[in-house]
Design a protein around this nucleic acid. Structure first.
Lengths: 342, 342
DNA sequence: CTGAAAGCGCTAACAA
DNA sequence: TTGTTAGCGCTTTCAG
């Protein structure tokens, strides 16, 4: 035991260079697998690097090479189940591309989105994947001027800055409305989140109303919530809306979790689903498979969206090109057991 | 419309300096709010920066200042509901600290953990938050040599590298076992994930078995699953284990989702819960609040763990000190409605 | 309050 | 195959 304590300084290429008796440049080549290096030299370098526990400094590397292997990913929330799934898709696709996702969360605040974006862009990432098409002017300007591929995800209803991968939430709402009308339901209630900044939920509802309007129907009632256990809220809201409006014959939920809560409530209350009351949610979450009855829903293609978006960044960052791609995925209506079949 | 296209080059301090007629150094001061600058100069600089749409280059800044405001966060998975909640806690706590979380995912693979860690450390973050106490030797060495605060989270059963924030999963299992025994259950089955690398689930089971052993009881049966909808798997496994072993009087699930599936199955099958059969899960997820009956569980303190870990990094990065802190949170047993009361 | 010089740790480009 | 030189864009330090 000697009392000697190393003055904490992280190792540099130079340390490896000295330890191996090879020039810094060659060490750098070995560590990056670039250029031809003799096997014996490579061996010596790797051995020294390993022995010292050298970890390269990407900050210096990025500055020198003007290349950064980071992809900025900006989402509104992590509690919303949907986004972790998108992130998984991104992670997966990027796994062996040499690119690294870096996540930022905005909490559905445009202001926060702006500052997260600024922060991330200041690391000069190779690309940006960002949820939604709605951004502040400043954020939009930053994205436009960044000179890197930008992929806006989740939603295609609006004008994209560069590339876009998502579904049309308007159409999702519209088609659900048509299916419901077609099944003969007429007195329809809507239950959703009280989130003025969740543009996609808003668009779904607008599309839904448009779909009803085609048949000359108006929403009979609506109920909104915020915070808390979605499943529980789904129950409570369902109870509330049915108390207020007992002759509703359909409930459309803005997401599957509250829909599942509603379904459980109805089953317990002995309500005839889908005979007397039909139900539908949105997202197509796994969870539904385990419920006593299969809630009607529409898959939001979350995982796929993540993958496709990441693939675009990967492709463009390789080719160096920026070109607006537009990928509109089509969510499939799953009638399940909660909409009666004709 | 002129056809002139700017050669894409990102702006530098120098551009702002020239546009504002102020030295680069002073521009830098203004943009970082450092040192005294006259109001008039500040104004001119900010105006120019805004007009040009300048975004500082943190890569260069970090290299020059040897300071990076990034916190590396490494978790096994994003599908497991638990981790997004931890990340939320971290995000929240770091919100106004000037620190930025950067997430990496390992898919429960030690090898992948090693490479993600290496990648992240090469950006010289201000700290690392990493799930679990089990790491490869190489990973452990990297963490030890990084010279920055390291917080291992979720679990306290083992030896920490630096700081640790979590709960004892062994104890969680142990206490659940005691509660179950105390309630008079004797023929007990365990249902969990088939994941050799989920050390925490493993420790819970070990603790659980130890708790049973105190009363001279052995696990009567076990059932494992992997992949798919947890809720559905919970149903299926429950059905399977009860078919095989109809006289079981308690089922302990390694997480709430499969527990919830089991609960739904039992209710539908008309099994008397908790009279004839008791049930318990683990995690204390929101979801449970919306179920017909409240599943017994134990809160894993996910959000709190995230916050505390982030707070440690924040504190240490300010003080520049590294010091092993140990925070053991105590999960509270929630008996709910699925363990009979004496 | 403002500016000039030096250099952070690495890699591009070129030379040997 | 290996080495040398000159920055990358910023901040630190020191001098006005």
């Amino acid at each position: 035991m000697n009392g000697h304590v190393e003055p904490r300084r992280t190792l540099t290429l130079r340390d490896v260079s000295e330890a191996s008796g090879v020039s810094e440049m060659t060490v750098s080549r070995v560590l990056r697998n670039r250029g031809d290096v003799s096997d014996s030299t490579r061996e010596r370098v790797l051995e020294a690097a390993r022995r010292l526990g050298y970890v390269p400094n990407k900050i210096a590397g990025a500055l020198a090479s003007q290349r950064v292997n980071l992809v900025a990913v900006i989402v509104p929330s992590l509690s919303n189940l949907v986004f972790p799934e998108v992130l998984s898709g991104i992670s997966e696709e990027l796994e062996d591309s040499g690119l690294q996702p870096v996540f930022g969360v905005t909490n559905y605040s445009a202001e926060r989105e702006e500052s997260v974006l600024y922060e991330m862009l200041s690391w000069r990432p190779s690309g940006v994947i960002i949820a939604g098409l709605e951004h502040s002017d400043a954020a939009r300007a930053m994205l436009q001027n960044a000179g890197i591929p930008i992929v806006e995800i989740m939603d295609v209803d609006g004008e994209a800055i560069d590339s876009v991968v998502g579904i049309s939430h308007k159409r999702a709402g519209l088609e659900m409305a048509r299916a419901i009308v077609k099944a003969g339901y007429r007195r329809i209630g809507f239950l959703g989140t009280k989130m003025p900044h969740d543009h996609r939920a808003r668009k779904r509802m607008e599309g839904f109303e448009a779909g009803l309007a085609e048949a000359g129907i108006e929403l009979a009632d609506r109920e909104f919530y915020s915070g808390g256990s979605a499943l529980l809220k789904g129950r409570e809201m369902t109870e509330a809306i049915l108390k207020r409006n007992p002759d509703l014959d359909f409930l459309y939920y803005s997401n599957d979790m509250i829909g599942a809560g509603g379904l459980l409530y109805c089953l317990e209350s002995g309500i005839d689903v889908p005979g007397k009351l039909g139900l539908a949610g949105f997202n197509g979450v796994d969870l539904l498979e385990g419920l006593p009855r299969r809630l009607a829903t529409m898959d939001a293609c979350r995982h796929e969206i993540g993958r496709r978006a990441a693939a675009i960044i990967g492709g463009h960052s390789e080719s160096g090109l920026i070109g607006g791609e537009r990928v509109e995925l089509t969510p499939v209506l799953q009638l399940g057991d909660t909409i009666r079949r004709s």
